[in-house]
Computed example of a mutant assay.
Amino acid sequence: MLKGAMEYAPSTFEERGAAVAFTTPLLSQTRVRRGERSKLEVLIPSLSQGMGIYVVAWKAVPEMVSMTMHDRYLHDLIVKEEACSPHEIRRATLRAARRGLAGPQAAQAARRALDEDEEQGTLTHYLLILAILKAVGLESPEMLRAGLDTDEGQRLTRELMTRAAESLAMDAALLYARLADVAAVTAPVGLAHSPRPGRLVRGLTDLKSFRDSMTDWAHAVPGDAAPVAVFCAEVAQHTIGIGEAVLAEFHRRIGAIGPLLQAWDREIVQLRAQAARMAWLLDGWSHITGAWEVVQAESRQQQAATVNDLFRILPLLPRKECSRDLMAESKEVKPAHRRSVRMLEDWRTGRMDIDAIRRIEAVKARVP
């Protein structure tokens, strides 16, 4: 059911919803959240160039919009799993892309992403073991030389971790269980001194590059899209500022691994909350940074069109996360946006913009 247009000024990330990587242009990066009676609903911005956000019952979306095969499958996955957090949506998105419904390159990218997730989890677990041993003064050159993937390395690790558990006044099995929980929470973010940055740390780095590139583009290409680009860069900067503060606190907490494991009930709740906040902060930005990178090889006209497309799906910070009223500022930019925006799809007739679909699939071909 289409509930109609509304002014969209969410107070929390949960109210803003999680971005969904649909390939249908009108639905690309629309957001899903829990609405009345915990039912899923989707927020669709600027239908037919309107000013408001349309709230649509999730199950009604296929009846309202002509969807690609990929999007119908992804939609069904989200309905079945009732997913609405960034982690859950990303997992469903990778499952859908892995089937090849968004093209073979997107399928390969999804498989690479899943493999990288597994490798990152293993690396994080290994580095946390080293951190625990260092915290209790049990660093072992022999274990490092042997490696955790050998029988000798695993034997030495078990001996040292048993001694570490004694130093921390806890059972060895409990230490291993808590370590596994910390690794699962930490892997998507990444450790401060990891040789391979975590996915969310890489996302923050990509966002900084996007901010700089968008600022430079606005100065180099004056026109109706320039103030839109400046606003996109400002929203990125505010997100970066909050993200860096959250990341610093997250890494500080991980750095004190001994106290974290001992004051477990309090510390793990805080750690999970900070990891979740990082995921919500960066939710939706990977598509935006990827789309902007893809369009760098195209004409200035296409770049301007992309700026306007990105403005439509910009992840504005909720009121409780930002001291500035970015929603009010976005309204000041909308006149410039309307002067140069182009329609992606006539939502009443369902005609698709095939070029736009191909550009979205090109973004999905990047590792999520």
Results as ranks from 00 to 15, higher is better:
N308G: 10
P318R: 00
P315W: 11
N308I: 00
T306W: 04
T306A: 10
R312D: 09
R319P: 01
R300I: 13
R324F: 09
Q303R: 15
Q301D: 11
L314T: 06
A297I: 13
K320H: 13
A305D: 11
F311A: 07
P318Q: 01
L314M: 11
F311Y: 13
L317C: 09
E321S: 05
L314G: 06
L317Y: 10
S299T: 15
S323I: 03
S299Y: 08
R300S: 11
I313M: 06
R319G: 07
Q296D: 04
L316S: 07
C322I: 01
K320R: 14
I313T: 10
E321R: 04
M327S: 15
R324D: 06
I313K: 06
T306N: 03
R324A: 12
V307P: 04
L310T: 05
R312G: 03
V307H: 09
L316N: 07
E298K: 14
A305G: 07
Q296W: 03
F311M: 08
R319A: 11
D309V: 01
P318F: 01
Q302P: 01
A297K: 15
I313G: 02
M327G: 14
Q296E: 09
V307S: 12
Q296G: 11
Q302K: 15
P315I: 05
A304M: 12
S323C: 00
E321P: 00
E298V: 04
L310Y: 05
A297H: 14
I313L: 02
R312A: 14
A297F: 12
A304I: 05
D325S: 12
A304V: 05
F311D: 03
I313P: 02
E321G: 00
A297S: 15
E298Q: 14
D309I: 00
N308M: 07
D325I: 08
S323Y: 01
Q302Y: 09
F311V: 06
P318T: 00
R319F: 02
Q296Y: 04
R300Q: 14
V307L: 13
R319D: 02
L310M: 04
N308Y: 01
P315Q: 07
E298H: 14
S299K: 13
P315E: 06
A297N: 13
R324L: 13
E298I: 02
Q296S: 14
A297E: 15
V307A: 15
D325R: 10
V307E: 05
Q302G: 04
K320S: 15
L314F: 06
C322A: 09
L316A: 05
P315R: 11
L326R: 03
Q302C: 10
S299R: 12
D309N: 06
K320M: 09
L316W: 07
L317I: 04
Q303V: 03
P318G: 00
R319Q: 09
K320D: 13
A305P: 00
M327L: 12
A304S: 15
P318C: 01
C322E: 11
Q303M: 08
Q302F: 06
P315L: 06
A305S: 09
K320I: 02
L316M: 12
C322L: 03
Q301N: 08
C322K: 08
C322Y: 06
Q303F: 03
E321D: 01
V307Q: 10
M327A: 15
D325T: 08
